[in-house]
């Protein structure tokens, strides 16, 4: 049972949270008004992952808490959590 330190609610157990995947992938174009990505670029964005063995920046949502999105940096081998930030401040997406 991971212990995730929600910046809004404090330390809470894993089962209050939902996982949102790799936070390092970036959507290019479109919504922010810039040129849309090519189909190939988009496919890579959608499907390819670094899948690191070690530090991983990832989204979590405090589903049964404040319902805010967070970006955690966690070790995928030891499950050590190095940092948790609000996605709207510290997010990388």
């Amino acid at each position: 049972m991971l212990l995730i330190s929600c910046p809004f609610c404090g330390e809470r157990p894993e089962d209050e949270f939902g996982f949102g995947g790799d936070a390092s992938v970036r959507h290019q174009g479109g919504g922010d008004g810039t040129e849309p990505a090519s189909v190939e670029q988009y496919a890579d964005y959608l499907y390819l992952r670094d899948n690191p063995k070690g530090r991983h920046a990832e989204y979590w949502v405090h589903r049964y808490g404040c319902r805010r999105w967070l970006v955690a940096e966690r070790d995928t081998v030891t499950h050590e959590i190095f940092s948790v930030k609000s996605a709207s401040e510290g997010g990388t997406g």
Partner: peptide, 16 residues
């Protein structure tokens, strides 16, 4: 798969 493919310079549509 991801770790080994990375040695060949490949990124995969795979998460572990």
């Amino acid at each position: 798969s991801g770790t080994v493919a990375a040695m060949a310079g490949l990124r995969l549509p795979i998460e572990t």
